[in-house]
Amino acid sequence: MTVRKNQAHLTPTEKRNFVDALLELKRSGRYDTFVTTHNAFIMSDTDNGDRVGHRSPSFLPWHRRFLIQFEQALQAVNPEVALPYWDWTVDRSPTSSLWAADFLGGTGRSRDGQVSDGAFAVTAGKWPVSVRVDGRGFLRRALGSGGQQLPTRAEVDAVLAMPTYDTAPWNSASDGFRNHLEGWRGVNLHNRVHVWVGGQMGTGVSPNDPVFWMHHAFIDRLWAQWQARHPGSTYLPAVQTRNVVSLNDVMRPWNDVTPADMLDHTRHYTYDTAA
């Protein structure tokens, strides 16, 4: 059974296995197919039209399915690997071990944002950024450069306390747990973390940075925590609703999985600590 662990608790061997599996997916071309898929949804999910991956109730089950597929690809390289999660309420500094040269490498240099240490630096030769929105083919970051702080545990807890999963109009203007977690409204959790990392993480091609998976694994864990705190609440909308994925509708691009199928993560993996 796959156990997703806090990245801060990984052993040196676990870190190396994870990095090596990422590099192999990149080498084989498989990695970039995930970046392409993500950007296609980022560009087509709109507040007033069809929306599946973002700014909609299915933000959480869509990314859960997306991460499961990615984790399976990693495990096809090395069955020992599981996706770690990044608890940015605790590891909230550019000096955290997450950003050390033996793991993801650090922030970008000021001139052009280029990450210049670790396995994902362009100078290491194994991480070309090919699916991109501009001409720069190297991984970029600007950790915390906007002067913004990562969300605090108190801010996370305030969002976890919201009892309603999502509300009409089921988009970036919605009240409720999903949109506050996604960050279009209120204290801003998920979106703010993308901005804090900067570089490709602030763009539609954000999965170019391996931290994308650890950020979303933590968002996914927060969904599980919310479920544990609100056993009487569930995914909404339950009935068919125009332009959005209701509980029993299938989600693109898989077309064989519904939000209902994604509610129980323990069928696929567990977390190192109870929700």
């Binding site: 950007n39 980022i42 560009m43 507040d47 007033n48 700014r55 929105v133 501009d134 109009p169 988009n171 970036s172 203007a173 960050g183 279009w184 998920h190 979106n191 703010r192 993308h194 901005v195 602030g202 763009t203 539609g204 954000s206």
Partner: peptide, 14 residues
């Protein structure tokens, strides 16, 4: 966005 604000593909979460 629904509230009238704008984003782009290079600043997608802000």
């Amino acid at each position: 966005n629904a509230d009238g604000t704008w984003i782009s593909v290079v600043n997608h979460y802000e």
